[in-house]
Computed example of a mutant assay.
Amino acid sequence: MNARDRDVDGRARSARPRDGLGRPLPYGAPGVERQPEGVVRSPGETVREAQRLLDAGMPFHAHEVFEDAWKSGPEAEAPLWRGLAQLAVGLTHAARGNAVGGARLLRRGAVSLTGREAYGIDVPGLIRWARELAARVEAGERIDPAAESPRLIGAGTPDP
Rank of each mutant, 00 (worst) to 15 (best):
R107V: 02
R23M: 04
Q35P: 00
N98D: 15
A50Q: 10
P74Y: 11
L84I: 06
H93P: 01
L105T: 00
E148S: 14
R142Q: 15
E33P: 01
N2L: 09
V89R: 09
V137G: 01
D159S: 13
G73I: 04
E64S: 05
R52M: 12
R34N: 03
D19C: 05
V8G: 12
G90R: 00
W129N: 11
A135I: 01
F66S: 03
L152H: 12
V100P: 05
T46S: 11
E33S: 04
A134H: 11
R48V: 10
G109E: 08
T92P: 10
E141P: 00
L54R: 03
G31Q: 02
V123N: 13
G20F: 04
G83T: 02
R52E: 15
G156R: 10
S14N: 10
A29W: 00
A88F: 14
Y119D: 10
L54D: 08
D19Y: 03
A3D: 14
N98W: 01
A50H: 06
L53G: 03
L91K: 08
E117P: 10
A85P: 13
P160V: 12
A139Q: 11
A134Q: 06
L133Q: 07
I143P: 07
L133R: 05
S72A: 12
A88Y: 14
R11D: 10
G38P: 06
P150E: 13
I121T: 10
E45A: 13
A3S: 11
I121R: 03
E49H: 06
E45L: 03
